[in-house]
Amino acid sequence: MNERPTILATRDAPDSHFLHVEQVDLRFSNGETRTYERLKGGGLGAVIIVAMRDPETVLLVREYGVGVDRYELGVPKGRLDQDETAEQGANRELKEEVGFGARKLKILGTLSLSPSYMTHLAHVVLAEDLYPERLQGDEPEELEVVPWRLDALHELIARDDVTEGRSIAALFMAREYLAGRYHPA
């Protein structure tokens, strides 16, 4: 496992291309008005990939999360590039982060981070029938790939390094879909 990076400095980013704050004036059906602020994402959307090595095993990645200043174990994910579908973006991110492509991709739904103040949505994509292929990604270090059995998700979510809610939700969606209990629209 990689050693945690050293934070050299922090500062406000007033002109961030990543997130922008916008004010939203609203009138509710009962006549009440309010002004809310929300973070408006600057990207084209994102994907969260549940990559199945085999019918029982998902491939996770251990990646440094600067927001919590530690390594987290979760599913591969990333932003979509210009003119990419969710399936294309998921396959590209899978090749960059895990070193596999997928012959079978299925969108299971979308997840938000915090809908009360963020516009960000991410597509949850199930990737099956994997084959080895690696693309150069934008990560500063190679990610550790960790296989995990779907029937042991209860052990995964008990770990201190598994806190990212979208990863947990995506794994649950995939497990329920593969068991025939969840049928995405």
Rank of each mutant, 00 (worst) to 15 (best):
V98F: 03
D69F: 01
E63K: 15
N91V: 10
E87K: 12
D54V: 00
L94N: 05
L108C: 06
E87R: 13
G89H: 12
S114R: 13
D25Q: 14
V21S: 12
E56R: 14
K104H: 14
R79V: 10
R62L: 00
K40W: 08
D129W: 01
L111K: 07
P14Q: 02
D83A: 14
D15F: 14
E32S: 14
Y64T: 07
I48C: 13
D25V: 04
T110P: 02
G74M: 01
G41N: 09
G45L: 00
G42H: 02
K104C: 09
L113P: 02
V24E: 09
E93I: 15
L111H: 02
V125L: 11
L80H: 06
V47M: 11
T35F: 01
Y131G: 02
H120K: 08
T85H: 08
V66A: 15
T119Y: 08
I48Y: 10
V61I: 15
P55A: 04
H20C: 12
V24I: 13
E96Q: 14
E87F: 13
L113N: 13
S29E: 15
S112E: 12
G101P: 08
G41W: 05
L111P: 00
R103Q: 12
K104G: 01
M52L: 13
L111R: 05
H20F: 03
D54S: 06
